[in-house]
């Protein structure tokens, strides 16, 4: 049997989970012990007061104001997300710049060299072409040759592949005719 003055006993008594025998002991004790009886009455009175408390009225337009706040918070979050992404990109660019900054002059020198070499090569090729045309007075064949080369190199791969297949088939057809004859 528990001590009737213990917290556990009181908790069970308040919850109404005492057994029949315990309840009888408890009622007997309340008759005998003034302090416990007064405390029990005070707890019962407290329950009455708290359970009878009026429900606080909701402020006017509470739900509308709350929803407006939610929408505002959502907009603010979207703005911050965009701002954060931009800031992250900017930060990444700064980090790259700091990390590869010392190598930048080298990179730009290399790029310039490539540009110059391309120009030089192109000029040399053009000079050769002009000299060939001037020497042999054969503008049309050279121009046609250059055009054919450009056409061949600039043509999309799919067209080239189709041409190759067509040519292979023609070759196979010719071989087949030869075998037949």
């Amino acid at each position: 049997m528990w001590d009737v003055h213990s917290d556990e006993w009181w908790m069970h008594a308040l919850e109404g989970t005492l057994t029949g025998e315990e309840q009888r002991v408890w009622e007997l004790h309340l008759c005998e012990c003034t302090a416990c009886r007064e405390e029990w009455a005070a707890l019962a009175q407290l329950d009455l007061v708290l359970n009878a408390a009026p429900e606080p009225p909701l402020p006017v337009n509470f739900a509308q104001n709350t929803i407006a706040k939610v929408l505002h918070a959502q907009r603010r979050r979207r703005v911050w997300t965009i701002f954060g992404s931009i800031a992250t990109l900017f930060l990444a660019a700064v980090i790259l710049l700091v990390a590869f900054g010392p190598a930048l002059p080298e990179i730009s020198r290399a790029a310039a060299a490539i540009n110059v070499s391309r120009d030089v090569l192109f000029q040399a090729l053009m000079r050769i072409a002009v000299q060939v045309i001037a020497a042999g007075k054969m503008f049309t064949p050279v121009a046609l040759g250059v055009a054919a080369a450009c056409f061949f190199f600039l043509m999309p791969n799919g067209v080239l592949a189709t041409l190759a297949i067509v040519m292979m088939r023609k070759k196979q057809a010719a071989q087949y005719i030869e075998v037949q004859s």
Binding site: D7, W10, E39, A42, L43, Q45, L50
Partner: peptide, 20 residues
Amino acid sequence: VKSRLFRARRAMAENLRQQQ
């Protein structure tokens, strides 16, 4: 939770008694 609730109820009951 049970223990805290009980102590709070006890404290409030005592307070209520004093108020009355």
